[in-house]
Simulated assay, not measured.
Amino acid sequence: MPLSRTASLLAIYPHITSRDRLLLQLLDDHQVLTTGQIHRMLFAARRTCQLRLNELAALGLIERFRFPRDGGGSQPWHWTLGHHGRRFQAAAHERLEPTARASNQTVQRLSANPHLTHLVLTNEFFVRLAEHARWHGEARLDRWWSEHVTHEQFRTITADGHGLWSAGGATVGFFLETDTGSEALGSRVVAKLAKYATFIRETGARYPVLFWLGSEQREEHLHRLLPGQHTSVPVATAGHAADPAGRVWLPRGCSSRVELAELPSDHGQPVAANPNYDDGVFLL
Rank of each mutant, 00 (worst) to 15 (best):
N113W: 00
A139T: 11
A45S: 14
I38A: 04
Y196W: 12
V235Y: 08
P227T: 03
L222T: 04
V235T: 04
T158N: 10
E94K: 02
L96D: 06
P270R: 10
A90D: 03
V281Q: 05
E262T: 10
H148R: 15
H115D: 02
W144S: 04
G137S: 14
A45P: 07
P76Q: 05
T237V: 15
P234S: 04
F88N: 05
N113V: 04
F282D: 10
R5D: 03
H151K: 11
R95K: 15
A191L: 06
N274V: 03
L260S: 14
I16S: 01
E63A: 07
D279A: 14
R21F: 12
V248T: 11
L141S: 08
R5F: 13
E202R: 15
D278I: 00
T17D: 02
Q89Y: 01
V149H: 09
E259F: 08
A44Q: 15
L110M: 01
C49V: 08
H39Y: 07
C49W: 12
Y196A: 10
R247E: 15
D29C: 09
R247K: 10
L61M: 03
L22C: 01
G36V: 12
G246K: 15
L210Y: 13
T99G: 05
T48M: 11
S182R: 13
A170C: 11
A184D: 04
T35Q: 06
L260H: 10
S111K: 02
Q37V: 13
G169W: 13
S4L: 00
K195T: 14
R128D: 13
E219M: 06
H39S: 05
F67Q: 08
D70C: 13
L121S: 12
R134C: 15
D28A: 06
A91R: 10
A90L: 09
A261P: 07
L56R: 02
G163H: 08
D266F: 09
T17C: 04
T122R: 13
R128K: 15
S146D: 13
S265R: 00
F67N: 07
H136A: 10
D278N: 00
G181N: 09
S232Y: 00
F65C: 03
G161Y: 12
L260G: 14
L260C: 10
L176W: 11
L59K: 02
R224K: 11
G181M: 03
R21C: 08
L250E: 05
P234T: 01
A184E: 02
G253S: 13
V258F: 14
H93P: 12
H221Q: 09
T198W: 04
V281I: 13
L81V: 00
T35A: 00
T6C: 11
W145F: 13
H78C: 05
M41I: 12
Q31M: 07
C254V: 09
Q217F: 08
W165Q: 15
R201H: 07
E216W: 12
T122S: 13
R52A: 12
V271E: 05
